[in-house]
């Protein structure tokens, strides 16, 4: 089973839920940190590094001796990454999504592809948990290919947890696509609700069963709960606004290790995920 942990709003506790859920499942679980612009799950699960692979996307390389400046490549590229003005085309590598279409449509075979580095995929092992994380290079705007490279390490035979980036844009969609269940983490505040609504719209669009974790219960108000009730969205777990959780977090410790009384919370979360997944979610 692939469980994705997402949220509209940043800082709601996606990583906290992801790493503690991984620890609760225990040995053999995969934890994929798909927040490639700021991977941080490793801070809670240091372990030892097992390897690192460079990820590239293919960008066009034009052989000017073969090019007759017909401009087909530029007419094909919807991202304006290659363009011709009656001469050999110009390539804008940072706009290229690496689809390879320009090379396919070139009637002269003048375009071949070369790899352009966008980041790395690192693998770690921490107490039986396999942690895979993407780390995008500084200045690179194209996160989805790196997210997909992280997901290529998925082992279908085991349970995997995907820690998604915040928001509802392309890197999040790239993370969620293909998962069996989505956990949306939010907080009981107007800000939490606003961004939860966006995240709910996104997950419904993707047609993946989902439920909500309400973190920092006790702050704010009850409007997130009212929204979930009206929309018939299951609340999978409530985590209280407990200062000791924040303290454990600030030391880079797992909640279930530092505060064993919370182990049952995450066990319940896992049970609820399995239950609502088989029920088809909402």
């Amino acid at each position: 089973m692939i469980i994705a942990v997402a949220s509209g709003k940043g800082g709601t506790g996606k990583t906290t839920v992801s790493v503690n859920l991984a620890r609760t499942i225990g040995s053999g679980v995969q934890l994929l940190d798909c927040d490639v612009e700021e991977p941080n799950a490793h801070l809670f699960l240091p372990g030892r590094e097992k390897g690192s692979d460079i990820v590239t996307i293919p960008i066009p390389l034009v052989d000017e001796s073969l090019c007759d400046a017909c401009g087909e490549c530029g007419r094909f590229c919807r991202y304006h990454a290659i363009v011709s003005f009656g001469s050999s085309p110009l390539v804008f590598p940072e706009l290229c999504h690496g689809c390879g279409g320009c090379a396919l449509v070139c009637p002269r075979g003048a375009i071949r592809e070369q790899g352009k580095r966008i980041g790395v995929v690192e693998t770690r092992e921490a107490d039986g948990i396999t942690l895979v994380q993407g780390r995008i290079d500084i200045g690179v705007a194209m996160a989805p290919p790196l997210v997909r490279a992280v997901k290529e390490t998925l082992n279908k035979d085991t349970t995997a947890i995907l820690d998604a980036p915040p928001g509802t844009s392309c890197p999040v969609i790239a993370t969620l696509r293909g998962s069996d269940f989505v956990v949306l983490v939010t907080e009981p505040t107007p800000f939490g609700l606003h961004d939860l609504r966006l995240a709910v719209d996104m997950v419904r669009e993707l047609a993946i069963p989902f439920g909500v974790v309400v973190n920092r219960m006790g702050v704010g108000d009850d409007r997130v709960h009212r929204f979930c009730r009206e929309q018939e969205i299951p609340v999978l777990l409530e985590l209280p606004d407990d200062r000791r959780i924040a303290e454990a977090y600030s030391r880079g410790e797992l909640v279930v290790d530092a505060l064993p009384e919370y182990a049952s919370h995450f066990a319940t979360l896992l049970w609820n995920i399995r239950e609502f997944r088989s029920a088809g979610g909402k």
């Binding site: 530029g74 991202y79 304006h80 990454a81 003005f85 706009l95």
Partner: peptide
């Protein structure tokens, strides 16, 4: 309205 490459597309338009 394009997501990216507006300057490149605008160049194509005026050319």
């Amino acid at each position: 309205n394009t997501a990216q490459g507006a300057g490149i597309q605008a160049t194509e338009a005026i050319v």
